[in-house]
Amino acid sequence: MFPDLTRDDVFRIETRRLWLRWPCAKDADAVLRLAGDPAVAGMTAQIPHPLSRAEVDAFLLQARAGNAAGTGLTLALARRSAPANLIGVVGLVGGEGAPELGYWLGRPSWGGRLMGEAVAAVLDAYFAYAGGAAVTASARIDNAASRRVLERCGFVRTGTETRAFPARGGAVTGDLFRLDRARWLGLASIDPETAQAA
C-alpha cells in the first residue's frame, strides 16, 4: 500500500508546527503516560485503560513492522521545537478496502489545533505518495472534537455503526467517515488552521 519512501525509519513529514516521524522505543514512556490518560483512552475504540507497558511495547513494534512492510503508516507527533518528545500518534492502517485513519493527542496539547494539521499532512502523503483511492475513519458519537477534525479535513459522514471493542468493555457506537481521492483532489487545500485538536 505504501511506497518505499515511507518504509524507512528516517521518513518524516514536517508541517508548520509539527514533526511526524516513525515511533520508536524511546517513545514508550510518553505513550504510556499520554495515551494511558483516561480522558484520551476513553475517546478511542482501541486503547485499553489501564494501559500497560507491555501493550505500549507491542504497539510500537507493530507500528514499526507495519511501516516497514508498507501495510500502514503510523507516525509519532512531536512539536518541531522538540522532535524527540512524542505528543500523540496518527496513522493509516491497511486492511480490506480503504485504509482506516486513527489518531490520538495527549491532553497537554489539546486545544492547539495540532491534530488537524497532522491529519492533513498524513492525508496529503497518502494520496500523493501512495496513490490511494480513499481513506475511512470513525469517531465515537460523544467525541465532537474528533468529528470536527475529520469534517474540516474533507471527510464526509457515511453512517453510524456499533462495533464490539473489548478495550472499551463492550460495544461502542461511532460515526463513520470517508474521504475519496476525487474529493481530496477537489479541495483547494485542507486548511489545518481551522481543524480542531482531538
Rank of each mutant, 00 (worst) to 15 (best):
T158S: 07
A39E: 12
K26Q: 14
E96V: 15
V172T: 09
I141M: 12
G131L: 01
R163V: 04
Y129N: 14
G174Q: 11
D57C: 06
F165T: 01
K26S: 15
G154Y: 06
G102H: 00
G131A: 08
R140Y: 05
Q62R: 13
A58N: 04
A182F: 14
R168F: 05
V122S: 06
G174S: 13
L150K: 00
A139M: 02
A63E: 09
D4I: 15
G94E: 07
A69S: 03
H49Y: 06
I47N: 05
L32E: 04
L105Q: 03
L176Y: 02
M115N: 06
A76W: 03
M43I: 06
N67Y: 10
E100F: 01
L75I: 02
A182M: 11
A69E: 08
A41S: 12
D37P: 03
I87Q: 01
E117Q: 09
D142K: 11
L105I: 07
Y129H: 15
G116A: 04
F177V: 10
A197D: 15
R113K: 15
W22E: 09
L60S: 00
V93I: 14
L5C: 01
G88F: 07
G186W: 07
D27M: 05
V89M: 09
G70L: 04
G186T: 08
E96D: 15
F59P: 00
L105A: 00
R147P: 10
P108G: 05
Q62K: 14
T194S: 13
V172A: 07
P83F: 04
D180H: 02
A69F: 09
A125F: 03
L34Q: 00
S81D: 13
N85K: 13
